[in-house]
Computed example of a mutant assay.
Amino acid sequence: PRSKRPKLGQHEQPQSYHQFVTNVPEYLGICNPRVLEDIKKFARGGGPDLSDLRNCPAPTSSPPVAMSSSKSTFLSGRRSSGTTITARTSSAYDRDFCQKLVDGGVYTAGYRDPITGEASKHPTNHKELREVLARPRESASPSTSEFEAYWQADVDARKEKQVSESIVPLIEGKIPDGRCRSGDILFNNLKPLTESNDLKSAKPDIYYGARPEQIHKSTRHDLGGYIVPSTESDLPVAPNFFFAVKGPDGSPAVAERQATYESALGARAMHKLQSYGKEKHSYDGKAHTLSATYCQGTLKLYTSHVEAPGQPGGPPSYHMTKLRSVAMDDSIESYKEGTRTYRNARDWCKKERDEMIREANQR
């Protein structure tokens, strides 16, 4: 007769199901609640008798503690057959995200060096960009009724989705090429922005880039991890304009952190195109990437540019600078200014992007 498999104990699991953690706090953080309760009861009773361990030398390393592979995956973010647990990745909604950006050489608007007190570097074309955004345009001349429709939509919006559906189209106006615009897409094809690789993949609300076929196939292949953001390869590539949107309850700080991260990825993409085929990297000190945020009636515009490494062989740094801020819900004049500023920024980014691509294709 076929022998029966021995029954597992109350808290046992098959050996093949186990991986390992290397310290007690990790184990207590993921163990079965019933096991944790047993441990607490045991501790309240005084714990084990350790009298026979007196004068014993301390162990040089902690023995591994078994845990289930599914819980190991939860902690590490990926399944692994070894004992290494990777660092936790963060998004713009996490409290440590901003510090991880700074540690990785990505500086938010207004950042100052803690030792020298120097402010983060402005792009050399900062003044020029402010002039570009102020240029008049016929498409940004709303009537009183159009402003009232915007104002009412802004008042009625209770969620981010409502802002995206009813307000963003009014700000954007006519989109020149729908194939160059996308959003809510995970940037899962890009190389990590920082050396520590502890940032989650970006997922912009809205971004603008080029059609893939605008860039030679060989160039897309060579620079794929920097300019092709998604594994869905027919989506816009080489993005350099980003728009983060929040609802009335949304956080302007989160929107700015999103913009910082996303526009740094865009600045890197432009830098890679600009340097493609050259013997040395190009660091011109100019911004070729812009980002915008909209939260609670206020539109903000930022630049992002790349600076050369501080030491030979080191990574470059990315600097975000505030460019404009407009309270669009204040008056018809401010609404007109906001739509003009946004559309001029978007059009300027397209011009910069197309020029970078044209030059890269010629090399």
Rank of each mutant, 00 (worst) to 15 (best):
K41H: 12
Y283L: 08
C56M: 12
Y342H: 06
V237M: 11
S51G: 13
L133M: 09
K278V: 08
K159H: 10
A134N: 07
E12F: 00
S70F: 01
D222P: 04
M328T: 05
V106H: 13
K322R: 15
S90Q: 11
Y335D: 12
D249N: 09
T194H: 12
E279Y: 08
R95F: 07
L273R: 08
P176R: 06
A292K: 06
D38A: 08
T289F: 00
G110V: 14
E359V: 12
Y294G: 00
R54F: 04
F243H: 13
D113R: 04
N23Y: 02
S263F: 04
E26K: 03
L190A: 10
E333V: 15
P25H: 00
G46Q: 05
Q162R: 10
L36M: 02
R257P: 08
K41Q: 13
A269F: 05
T298A: 13
Y342N: 09
W348M: 06
T108G: 10
R211M: 14
A308I: 01
S230F: 05
N32L: 13
Y107I: 04
N125K: 02
V106C: 09
A202D: 11
M356Q: 04
H271A: 15
T116K: 02
N55F: 00
E337G: 06
F20S: 12
S16H: 07
P142D: 05
E352A: 14
Q362H: 07
S275L: 03
Q99T: 12
D184C: 07
D94Q: 13
Y294A: 12
F243V: 11
L50P: 07
K127R: 08
V35R: 14
E165G: 02
S145L: 02
N361K: 08
D284K: 12
Q152L: 15
L8C: 00
S120L: 02
T84R: 01
I357M: 00
G247T: 10
E307Q: 12
I167C: 14
S182W: 04
R54E: 06
L235G: 11
R220H: 13
S90I: 00
E279R: 02
A267E: 06
H216Y: 14
E232R: 14
M356Y: 03
D249M: 09
E131F: 08
Q13I: 06
A259W: 08
Y302V: 07
G209I: 13
P14L: 10
K191A: 09
S196W: 05
D156C: 04
S317P: 03
R44Q: 01
S304R: 14
R158F: 03
S304A: 15
